[in-house]
């Protein structure tokens, strides 16, 4: 049995080995972009079913962001929402026979985690400036600086392992079961996998949002926070 931790390079573009996960990611990107382009082509003032569904997605996203962090969703909507949609579609891509979800590969999850790490810095600097971002490490007091610095790495690493472990374990278990009894038996596990994929996508997005908003809040001076 192949190790789930290793990726097989299909071919190389220059120095870059192209794995199946990268190809699937490109496919997902194409599907998402084309779908979004096709769906948002004609937005009118009086929404039809299609537009109502789109607006429902956006509104739900806004509501979740507002509920979990209390922040205005507008600046974060693009990043968090795209993260959620991408992870969700990637997790569910295992429904297509012969495809492994890209999130079952270490590289994809690591890339997502790195992106969250960078986005925390990016939004923190945007919210309170460089000084504000650095000050956010001294919250709630100066003694916590080393712990906060450590935490900023470990929490991202935790997200990385969590997403990878969940998705990979689902794929792994299904692979084992399918190798034992091919027909119909894996179906309940696949259904469970769907739920896990949805919940993990939600958790990943919400955690990223929580980290970002915590950094922004800690970096904002007290006087501005009142406004």
């Amino acid at each position: 049995m192949n190790s789930p931790l290793d990726a097989v390079a299909l071919f190389q573009i220059g120095p870059v080995p192209i794995t199946q996960a990268i190809l699937t990611t490109w496919g997902i990107m194409a599907v998402l972009l084309l779908g979004a382009f096709a769906l948002t082509r004609r937005l009118t003032l009086t929404p039809g079913r299609r537009q109502a569904a789109l607006e429902l997605i956006v509104t739900t996203m806004d509501t979740q962001i507002r509920e979990t962090t209390g922040a205005e969703p507008a600046p974060y909507r693009g990043f968090i929402g795209t993260l959620f949609l991408f992870i969700l579609v990637a997790n569910w891509s295992s429904l297509i026979p012969g495809l492994d979800p890209p999130t079952a590969q270490l590289e994809t999850d690591a890339a997502l985690a790195v992106l969250v790490f960078l986005s925390v810095i990016w939004f923190g600097v945007q919210g309170g400036g460089v000084a504000g971002y650095l000050r956010s490490f001294a919250s709630p007091n100066v003694v916590m600086i080393p712990l906060n610095m450590l935490e900023s790495v470990t929490r991202v690493f935790s997200m990385f392992v969590r997403l990878f472990g969940n998705v990979m374990s689902g794929v792994f278990v299904i692979g084992i079961v399918a190798s034992l009894a091919g027909l119909l038996v894996p179906i309940p596990l696949m259904a469970l996998d769907l739920l896990t994929g949805l919940v993990q996508a939600y958790i990943f997005a919400v955690l990223a949002m929580v980290f970002i908003s915590a950094t922004v809040e800690d970096g904002t001076p007290k006087s501005q926070k009142e406004t």
């Binding site: 789930p4 935790s158 392992v161 472990g165 374990s169 958790i203």
Partner: peptide, 25 residues
């Protein structure tokens, strides 16, 4: 509840990852 269950499950997943590391890497 679902979110919390997923978070709790993560600890088991960590163990699974460690086991896989032991087995395959």
């Amino acid at each position: 509840l679902f979110v919390g269950l997923a978070m709790i499950e993560t600890t088991a997943i960590y163990c699974l990852v460690i086991a896989l590391l032991l087995l395959f890497a």
